[in-house]
């Protein structure tokens, strides 16, 4: 390493190592995700045509909930160990640091969920040729979930036991992504329907707005 690491990449790497440092830390959301999805057939019945009609939507709901499970700690630990104060003094814009941190968190806690959606989709009787395109849709939509969840996490960083508060703040913001995500699967994700573009648009919008909201919220938490 010739130069000192920029705060952006430092925050990115730190988020990744935090996620894996606890051993099975990053496996917990995967377990929650799979558990939530597997509970559904027990709740609604196991008829294959019924499952295949709603399986894609079940995974959207499970993905939305799973994204919230790991959110509570992501900025709280930065507040506690002083990393946040370092970010505030860094030259890099706080919004970029927050975006990098959230994106790394998506890689560590969101991407594993996306990677097992083909397996869960198979169990929920999704058409086999749709499994991989659907995983792509889950990946794109998951970014929006993590960005808005990150806003909730940043806003509640200084609040003890803020987990439920994050859910209350973020879930209404998940609505467009969940709608367009489910419509993309319904139209057949493999054909790249117009709904897929709308889904991507919700994620781009989240990436455009959420970092600035996170930065403002982190400044508040540091005070």
């Amino acid at each position: 390493m010739v130069t000192a690491p920029s705060p952006i990449s430092a925050a990115f790497r730190q988020a990744l190592s935090e996620a894996w440092a606890g051993g099975a830390g990053a496996l917990l959301p995967v377990g929650f995700f799979a558990g939530a999805a597997i509970l559904v057939p027990f709740g609604i019945g196991s008829q294959p045509d019924q499952l295949s009609a709603i399986g894609g939507g079940i995974l959207w709901v499970a993905l939305a909930l799973s994204s919230l499970v790991t959110m509570e700690r992501i900025f709280q630990s930065d507040l506690e160990d002083g990393a946040l104060d370092l970010w505030l003094q860094a030259d890099a814009p706080l919004a970029a640091i927050a975006a990098a941190k959230t994106f790394a968190h998506w890689l560590a806690a969101g991407l594993p969920l996306v990677l097992i959606t083909p397996l869960l989709g198979l169990m929920l009787q999704l058409p086999p040729d749709q499994l991989l395109p659907a995983a792509g849709a889950y990946g794109v939509g998951g970014i929006a979930f993590f960005m808005w969840g990150g806003v909730g996490a940043a806003l509640t960083a200084s609040v003890r036991r803020g987990g439920l508060l994050i859910a209350l703040i973020a879930l209404p913001l998940y609505v467009p992504t969940a709608i367009f995500g489910a419509m993309t699967l319904e139209a057949g994700a493999a054909r790249m329907p117009p709904e897929a573009l709308l889904l991507a648009a919700t994620s781009l919008f989240a990436c455009g707005i959420a970092p600035f909201a996170m930065a403002a919220a982190l400044r508040l938490a540091a005070d």
Partner: peptide
Amino acid sequence: RAGAIIAMVG
């Protein structure tokens, strides 16, 4: 501050 941020995001 928190209220203003979430109201604007909303």
